[in-house]
Amino acid sequence: MVADPISVLIVEDHQVTLDGLKLGLSREPDLLVIGTATNSDEGLALAKQLRPDIILLDLHLPGSAGPKSAIQAFCSVPGSRVIVFSGESRLAFIQIVLRMGASGYLLKSENVGKVAETIRQIMSGKKAIISDELQVGETKVTKSEQEVLKMMARGMKYQDIADLRQTSPATVRKQCELLLLKLGLNSREELIAWAVQNGYGNLELEP
């Protein structure tokens, strides 16, 4: 018994990239490219009409909407999950893209194999998948993030951490989001586990 293929809509204004993606993905037996568009308006209309499982979306698209509102619009298409595909590698922007509801963020330097793999992972329920290259690793964790990790490893809640650090829970949450990106993790639980495994639970908290 063969499952239905995963339907994919590609919205990308660079023709070469679009053609390459389409060709590459169509070689995967479990994926089916059901439509393509080269601007956000056209793409959004198609998405609403076709309701694809996955929308592969370029970050900067021609069209009436700016990238922020475009992503918001695509993310609110019922039944579709969005993977943003872009050359933009600055974490602050990726953070907000994921916060707006995108399920994945891939750099344009990735090969088609990675794109296909990411599509499958997302369909199996994983969230916030980003390119490996963006996971800068532990060396780029700042001192204040280390402090947060220590507190996380002790099982402290955002509110408690915020109180101790004289900041707000929202700021702590954003710091954790950035940590997830940097470390290539997917959830708060994974972050706590990572912190404990990497020895943050054994360290003394600075007063």
């Binding site: 900067h60 700016g66 990238p67 922020k68 600055r90 974490l91 602050a92 922007f93 953070q95 907000i96 954003k174």
Partner: peptide, 11 residues
Amino acid sequence: KDWGLQTVIED
């Protein structure tokens, strides 16, 4: 313009 003040300051 694209992303708003908060995100660019964060960046």
